[in-house]
Design a binder for these strands. Structure first.
Lengths: 241, 241
DNA sequence: GTTTCGATATCGACC
DNA sequence: GGTCGATGTCGAAAC
């Protein structure tokens, strides 16, 4: 680990170069301009920002506000650093798609380079759609009495159905799960699966489509009624509600 | 600006407390465990991570890999710092929805606090869907000869139509724009708008639905044909293609 | 590689 | 505050 307060740009360049070479995580804070050109294009005028360069090729530029970086480059990019016309220029670029991020520092308040230990295990998240699926498969009556799940991720030409099964009267049931409140997009998704199943099964028999989520918006409710689809309110498990 | 190498946890707490109080951007690098509980729940074992606390209440926890933070808290949260059982504990929490992020440092390699100047102007991005819309409105024949735009963001019960107009034969045209390659979701969106317009106009006359994007996936192409919708290939402008 | 869909999506606009 | 749709969405899994 090495860290420098108010370094000269040239000194910082040496530290950043060495940090990138040895696979460390590099941070910079200072006054810079940023330009991006690739899938879109953007420019950002001079100001103080925090820059994070990861050993996997990720680059992030953060201002004082917002969860998202104001500019970034995804993993797999190549970081380079150089002096140009008195400025410290950090570039991060990739091909496919061709895009380039250029950060031009005119002054620096801090630069650091840090060794990151391997992650022993990743983050484990509870409360996802997969958990909701498990919960429902273990307790099919949460959907309705007599529901029998037959398959998960059942493939159709329109995509994979979350849960596929039958109801107490033997009708086919298509279940689409969402871990949070749903809008029109989820209704359309469910409808595509029901339509696809009608075609594939070559049947005139009723196929029920049921959207399972904590709640539903008004416009989505209208869409559900319009297409004879149903809604069952169900929260993801393992939440301290 | 203040910056400390391998600070004691207690010294770091003082610097972080002061940085949060004065509205500075605070960074920490060290060995920590992270827990989150709220919309979902997650745990992350011990390891070296980079933590960024913004004056707007954003918290970000980054590992060596990935563009996205491994844990985070959105803007508007309240950051607090305290010592607990020999560890430096940073918490970030909010209500509505109730969620809390807890970062427990057992050691620190660096802590810093930086003043961020106001952004004189934000980032300006070129190549968005709005640019594609402007481009098409200025050159309607890019869609097809004889196309006449009548409105943008025309409201329907299903949502707003990107561009609404008529073709050379006076038929109503619904245009849905996407700045990048489209999948089935965009086709469903266009279909909802065309259906809504049929109902609202109380007409049996043909309404054409045209999806405009750089390209389209196979399954989306099938969906387009299935519902008698059309596709026109068009790139967003201002890209150096 | 492409395609598809989930996400603690985030973000902005509008109501 | 809720709703809706865009995003340089990101990320993973299936193919």
């Amino acid at each position: 680990m090495r860290s420098l307060e108010t370094p000269s740009l040239r000194t910082a360049m040496t530290l950043v170069t060495e940090g990138l070479r040895t696979g460390e995580l590099v941070t910079l804070f200072g006054c810079c301009r940023v330009e991006y050109d690739g899938r879109a294009a953007s420019t950002l005028g001079s100001g103080n920002r925090h820059v994070l360069l990861k050993p996997d090729g990720t680059a992030l530029v953060h201002t004082a506000t917002g969860q998202q970086p104001v500019n970034w480059q995804p993993p797999g990019c190549t970081h380079t650093v150089a002096m140009d016309e008195g400025a410290l220029v950090v570039t991060s670029e990739r091909e496919t798609p061709a895009e380039q991020l250029t950060i031009r520092f005119e002054s620096l308040e801090h630069v650091g380079s840090f060794q990151v230990t391997d992650e022993p295990e990743g983050v484990s998240v509870v409360g996802t759609e997969a958990d909701l699926s498990d919960h429902l498969l273990e307790n099919p009556s949460l959907l309705e009495s007599g529901f029998t799940p037959l398959a998960t991720e059942r493939e159709t030409t329109a995509g994979a159905i979350d849960i596929y099964g039958t109801d107490s009267e033997g009708r086919t049931v298509v279940v689409e799960l969402k871990r949070r409140r749903v809008g029109p997009d989820a209704v359309s998704q469910l409808r595509r699966y029901v339509d696809a199943l009608h075609r594939e099964l070559h049947t005139d028999a009723e196929i029920r489509g049921i959207l399972v989520a904590p709640s539903v918006t008004g416009r989505a409710t209208s869409l559900l009624e319009e297409h004879d689809l149903e809604f069952v309110a169900l929260e993801p498990p393992s939440r301290d509600v």
